[in-house]
Write a protein that binds this DNA or RNA. Structure first.
Lengths: 105, 105
DNA sequence: TTTATTGTTCGTATTTTTGCGAATAAGATT
DNA sequence: AATCTTATTCGCAAAAATACGAACAATAAA
């Protein structure tokens, strides 16, 4: 692994998307498929509707979720392909971090 | 996985630590064991020494790295146990996110 | 003891993130 | 057409993250 600067940037972006408890909670909800609608999540998560929309936007911009209009509601779901990709990236990165195996201090 | 709010908080904290390219670069360097000293990294990374110290502090506070004084320098290295733990956490979380397997939209 | 070397901490400025209510949009319902 | 439901965008405020130079330790070397 020479430098991987682009990969660092991509990883940082995904880590950013995962760096808020509410966003992680959203992902869990969507994984359970119990609630997929904004209003549904708003009822459970401790944030205002507008705040929830912002978090959904962050996840959407990062590609982790998709949204589909199902009038008058919006159904959200996970982008499993992307999440698989992210899982790979994190796995490879963290494995690389461990590979040396030597504790210098 | 009922709610796992604490786990969300822990995950979010680790994700936060990993959400900056320079911090990821630091981790890669330490994994390579090629450079373990502040000055050494400062020469390679595109940030001022004081900024580097801040990033090192973030990583240290999150538990990902350890620092040991080796006068007049400070030797840094990865906390492999913690990184292993983080790898587990991310792996479990992302696997859980994929487990449903159904694309609703 | 003076002087270098190495890093950190402090003070500050800038940018980004987070959060919320109000206003808005878009479509269904009456 | 008027209204209701649902969710987003806007405007703003507060908090956190980022970055840097200057000032400050702490130790080694002269």
């Amino acid at each position: 692994m020479p430098e991987a600067l682009d990969e660092n940037q991509a990883l940082a972006t995904y880590a950013q998307a995962l760096s808020h408890p509410v966003r992680l909670a959203i992902i869990r909800r969507l994984a359970e498929q119990s609630v997929c609608f904004h209003g549904n999540m708003a009822a459970v998560l401790p944030v205002a509707p507008s705040t929830l929309s912002q978090h959904l936007k962050v996840l959407k911009d990062a590609g982790l979720i998709k949204g589909e209009i199902d009038p008058p509601r919006v159904r959200y779901c996970l982008n499993t392909a992307k999440i698989k990709e992210i899982k790979e990236l994190f796995d490879i990165f963290l494995e690389y971090a461990l590979q040396g195996g030597v504790e210098n201090c």
